[in-house]
């Protein structure tokens, strides 16, 4: 954490001083969605284990009453998070081949991926959301 940083030399200016732009937002969002997917995968794995041992009754409250809406909202967020990370991860693989570094195209793709990730999210939840 920043307070534990003991190096007295000046640090490079960080988030606070830069104007937000598309490529910066998409880079930060890639990390944020990665952490989101981590939490989601852990939750799904725990759920699979509970199912295997017939202990899913202990989390039945997640699918009852108003909690069902909280769970659904979380899963919709997770679907967007996975969609975004999948699309932007594909972009990372293209970068590994040295492709996709032009400034204008990078800005466009950053914005495009944020919006295109809505499509699989909406398709899944409008199709199977009931």
């Amino acid at each position: 954490m920043a307070s534990d940083w003991s190096d007295p030399r000046p640090m490079s200016p960080h988030l606070q001083v830069w104007r937000w732009h598309a490529t910066m937002a998409s880079s930060i969002l890639h990390r944020a969605t990665g952490i989101g997917n981590y939490i989601g995968a852990v939750a799904i794995a725990v759920w699979l284990v509970l199912l295997a041992f017939g202990a899913e009754g202990s989390i039945a409250f997640l699918f009852e009453g108003w909690m069902a809406w909280v769970t659904r909202f979380g899963l919709i967020l997770l679907t967007y998070s996975v969609s975004y990370h999948w699309l932007n991860g594909l972009r990372h693989l293209f970068w590994d081949f040295g492709k996709g570094f032009d400034p204008k195209g990078s800005n466009f793709r950053s914005m495009a991926i944020m919006f295109v990730a809505i499509i699989p999210t909406a398709a899944l939840w409008l199709g199977f959301g009931s």
Partner: peptide, 10 residues
């Protein structure tokens, strides 16, 4: 740990 537990459960 969770990976191994999941494999066992599956």
């Amino acid at each position: 740990g969770l990976w191994l537990v999941t494999v066992f459960a599956l």
